[in-house]
Design a protein around this nucleic acid. Structure first.
Lengths: 231, 231
DNA sequence: GTGTAGACTTACTAAGTAGGAACACTAAAT
DNA sequence: ATTTAGTGTTCCTACTTAGTAAGTCTACAC
């Protein structure tokens, strides 16, 4: 992902991000110099500098002419994160907790949201997790799997390619896996695939019958893998 | 702060935030019901619902008519925070560290940015912190001060009102304090006031002469407080 | 007058907001 | 049975604001 795009996630516009990077690279500059080195028109350079200061991305150095100095990247990012963490706590405190009904069949759309749900299911698991995902996806949630294992969660992983992880039971499938499947605590299940990027969809459910169905299905998958391995 | 406004910090529009809150309050709804209860026009309700799903704030329930269910607030917020933390790490890894020159006199604008700088100075202190702030501001950075004390940072606090804190040296001033002043590690200093909200300005500097000046000034302030107490 | 420094003006685009209209389908009232 | 009211969804128009792009105007210094 582009550096500028990453910075926009912290609330900067593309101009502000470009200016911020220029300040880091070139040292402390004034508006005119910023415009010259970034190629942003002077008028926009001045307004963007002002709003960059307002957003806490740069400080003002008062000299003969006003110069700007970038705030350290870790500091700038952490300020935003801290603010969101505070906002999260405030929201949790003010918003009535959602009664966790046994929902029906829920569709989760978009690769990002699916991976987030995958992560959160692993993070919230109390006893055991059965997960069957392509190696590539396993990589992205590895940290969460490890932390679950450290919490003494029983972890059974089905994936393709070679993979080992202390504390987890691993089954390696021959064919490349297409699907994502996860069962946590025998109570909630996630299935689908993320091959369509942001158009991917997954099914999430806490319905007993579906969960049982998937438990059997994964048991069979594991049996099959072990049998073909035996040959 | 308004709940809707807090949610917008997590990337939702006002419409999306209102819809999200309605879903939490009313349970799972379809587009028509959302429009009816929120008062948002039907056309916008549908588009906002779609983008709320895209942003991971709600899931789709497929039944006779499509219904929407809100994602738990903690989960939604944490997804965003996790993403930003990852982005922060990526940025730190890709961006060349700013050489920490002895900058001149830096002006920090806006109450939020000033308080952030205050926090970060406390967080980054290695040895000692002298801080002189009104009780009200002391409250907001109390957590950071406590964690600094736990890191064995020497902490000297001048404030008004009554205040005690284990591990810190406290001096109570009679008159209400107007100014913010902080010296960390005898190397960097922050001074100004935040009484003008977002139009407040503070001076930050690592200049030796200014730091020394402030050290003396705060020493005198402490002496004066102790002497008047003696009377 | 040429480079530096900053402010003002205009224009285009995209996103968010606000509201009307078309269309289809269902249940109740006449 | 036909009309009417309500439900559910999509499409279209319009206004506002923010971000972007670019030109003009003043002022000063060397």
């Amino acid at each position: 992902m582009d550096i500028v795009e990453r910075l926009t996630q912290f609330g900067l516009t593309r101009h502000e991000a470009a200016i911020y990077l220029t300040l880091l690279a070139e040292g402390d500059l004034n508006g005119y110099e910023v415009a010259k080195t970034t190629g942003i028109s002077r008028s926009n350079a001045y307004t963007s500098l002002a709003s960059l200061v307002e957003k806490g991305g740069a400080y003002v150095i008062e000299e003969a002419t006003i110069r700007y100095t970038p705030v350290a990247i870790a500091e700038f990012c952490q300020n935003k994160i801290r603010k969101l963490q505070q906002a999260k706590q405030d929201l949790i405190a003010t918003i009535p907790a959602k009664r966790d009904a046994v929902e029906g069949y829920i569709t989760i759309k978009g690769e990002n949201n699916i991976l987030n749900k995958l992560r959160n299911m692993i993070l919230e698991a109390r006893e055991r997790v059965y997960i069957s995902v392509p190696a590539q996806i396993l990589e992205t949630v590895l940290g969460d799997i490890e932390s679950a294992i450290n919490r003494d969660i029983k972890m059974v992983i089905i994936t393709n390619g070679s993979f080992t992880l202390a504390g987890a039971t691993i089954h390696i499938a021959d064919q490349p896996l297409q699907q994502i499947r996860l069962i946590a605590d025998s109570t909630n299940v996630l299935t689908g695939d993320v091959s369509n990027g942001e158009h991917s969809t997954c099914l999430y459910s806490r319905k007993r019958n579906l969960v049982d169905l998937f438990k059997d299905s994964m048991k069979n998958e594991i049996k099959l893998i072990e049998m073909t391995k035996g040959n």
